[in-house]
Amino acid sequence: MVDAGARWAAEEVPGGRVREGVRAYFLIAGMWIRSTMAYRTSFVLMTVTNFATTALDFVAILLMFSRVDALGGYSLQQVAFLYGVSSTTFGLADMVIGSMERLGRRVRDGTLDTLLVRPAPVLAQMAADQFALRRLGRTGQGALVLTWALLRLDIDWTPLRVLLMPVMLVSGCAIFCAVFIAGAAFQFVAQDAAEVQNAFTYGGTTLLQYPPTVFATELLRGVTYVLPLAFVNWLPATYVLGLPYPLGLPEWAAFLSPLVAAGCVGLAGLAWRAGLRSYRSTGS
């Protein structure tokens, strides 16, 4: 009575969970890209808006520098360097995984359940949800400012400094991804408190756009030792720029970003698993 053809489905999938997740991610993201193309005008408008929103951040900095020559001892070009790295890495993370902030909403309206009956990791499905290419606007704008800063700055390029640039961008993006994942995990517990994570995501990228010398020591310690956002750009960037980091950390600390990023991603992954487990046992 059983249809023989059905047996293929029971076979295990080749590749591990990570590979399966990445594959599902690209499949779903591709569907979203096609969906947004259904409203082409809106897509163009939103990409421009996304670019402009973030550009206004930088306009504010330009306006400040129209009145002063330095901020916290940093020149406009140096601030632009920090700004560029912060915006580019955050923009990428936001595009790749930013939709995770909608988790609370999906828990509330019950649509998270539809992800749980598909044969792919929920994290990957959630990250790809509402994938929007328009978010490239922010990354593009950040990259533009970064390029401008690099052209205008007179950096003493050593091999280590050159090496640190891509390392900084990749690690920074990973750290922001970890923040997004941890924020989503938190929403399993407090669905209505989605806004808290804005303080760390949007707040984080805004913070890192300004020189570390501007902020109080306690705040610096917080974002260096507790929530290590400083490793996105402050620590590696001060090394590249040849400026001291206010907390007096040894020089090699600038190279810790990849380790810190790996640690953050690992911890965020654990938090996500705990969150999902708690959802599956409480169903709320």
Binding site: A10, I28, S35
Partner: peptide
């Protein structure tokens, strides 16, 4: 996930189809 390959689920009031895309696209996915 292993079970997911062997079961089908239809939530009556919650479509899993892709809202803005032709029906066939949901099947291709």
């Amino acid at each position: 996930t292993r079970l997911a390959r062997r079961i089908g689920v239809v939530f009556g009031q919650r479509t899993t189809l892709w809202w803005d895309l032709p029906l066939i696209d949901s099947y291709r996915l």
